[in-house]
Simulated scan of single mutants.
Amino acid sequence: MNKTEIMNKATKAFYKVGYTLKKHSPEILVVAGVVGTVVSAVLACRATTKVSEIMTDTKIDVDAVHKCLETQSEEDYSKEDGKKDLVIIYAKTSFELAKLYAPSVLLGVASITSILASNNILRKRNVALTAAYATLDKCFKEYRGNVVERFGEQVDRELRYAIKAKKFEETVVDEKTGKEKTVKNKVDVVGIDGISDYAKFFDEYNPNWEKDSEYNLMFLRAQQNYANDLLVKRGYLFLNDVYKMLGFEPTRAGQVVGWRHEPEKSDCDGYVSFGIYNANRETARDFVNGYERSILLDFNVDGPILDTLDD
């Protein structure tokens, strides 16, 4: 391995470490701030144990000045001399106290600054994340608008949810002859590609799931109604709010996207749907009919709403 290759590898390693530190800088700053705050408190406690010594020396010096003022004549030790000495004593005491607590105060300020810096970095990242979601959502809506304009709403719906016709055979009884016969039918079903990135499986791994299809349907309907009530009351609702009430872990996307209740605007549904009664999904029909105890929930979020709350 020549010198150039060694330098290139060292450079890459250096930048990789720098990138890792930058990526995790909020966590590092918070940890540093918390640890620094604790150490600052410990240093302050240790400094406090030495305050009595400083105050004792100060009292001795002050008492000596007052004694001189009482016992000596005005010519030997005047009141002005006493005032000057007291100022020097108090200044010295202040300096000693400041020097004693300086490490604790400086470390405490640095710790608070670290925590605030971490919060500032996270705030900027959230702003950037929100802007990215808003851009993607805008482009997607423009694309769907172009599809609707050119091919119609039916084609847009089929493309959006990856709806395909599924053929199946069914045995029926002929009303005229009374004999059984096999007929071919087809039904539109949603493919897995039509599921959004926000979908979640409500199954046995969820703490609110039960081995009772009727209970699960009742629970999801109740939570959906509650979510709609919150949306109307607040005027907005984040996806993470719904995740929490259903028993799912919050996500990064969930703190940005959600629903808006603005009936006067056409760019939002204005209601919350879990996709339970989606007739185009065979699994949803089986769940509602009680044949399945689990279901894939797909939420009709309006898109990024974080920037719209200040409007």
Rank of each mutant, 00 (worst) to 15 (best):
M1G: 13
M1Q: 08
E5N: 13
N8T: 15
K9G: 09
K9E: 08
A13S: 14
Y15A: 10
K23H: 09
S25K: 04
L29E: 05
V31H: 05
V34H: 03
V35W: 10
T37E: 03
V39H: 03
A44Q: 00
C45I: 14
D57G: 08
K59V: 10
K59H: 08
D61H: 03
H66L: 15
K67D: 11
K67M: 09
C68Y: 09
D76F: 07
S78C: 00
A91S: 15
A91P: 07
T93Q: 07
P103R: 04
S104E: 05
V109D: 00
A110L: 14
S111T: 05
S111G: 00
I115D: 03
L116E: 06
A117F: 09
S118T: 02
S118A: 04
N120I: 10
K124G: 01
A131P: 02
Y133W: 10
D137T: 01
Q154D: 13
L159W: 13
R160L: 13
K164T: 11
V173C: 14
E175F: 05
T177N: 01
E180G: 06
V183N: 04
V189D: 07
G194Q: 10
I195E: 02
I195K: 04
K200C: 05
F201K: 15
E204V: 08
N206L: 05
N206W: 03
N208V: 06
W209L: 03
E210W: 09
K211Y: 14
K211R: 15
D212E: 02
D212F: 02
Y215F: 13
Y215K: 12
Y215C: 11
Y215T: 09
F219N: 05
R221I: 10
R221Q: 11
Q223C: 04
N225W: 06
D229H: 07
L230A: 06
V232K: 15
G235S: 02
Y236Q: 03
D241E: 13
V242G: 01
M245Y: 01
L246K: 00
L246G: 00
L246P: 00
G247Q: 04
G247N: 01
G254T: 00
Q255W: 04
R260A: 06
P263D: 04
E264C: 08
V272C: 06
T283A: 14
R285W: 07
R285N: 13
D286C: 13
Y291Q: 14
E292R: 15
R293S: 15
N300Y: 06
D302M: 00
L306Y: 07
T308A: 09
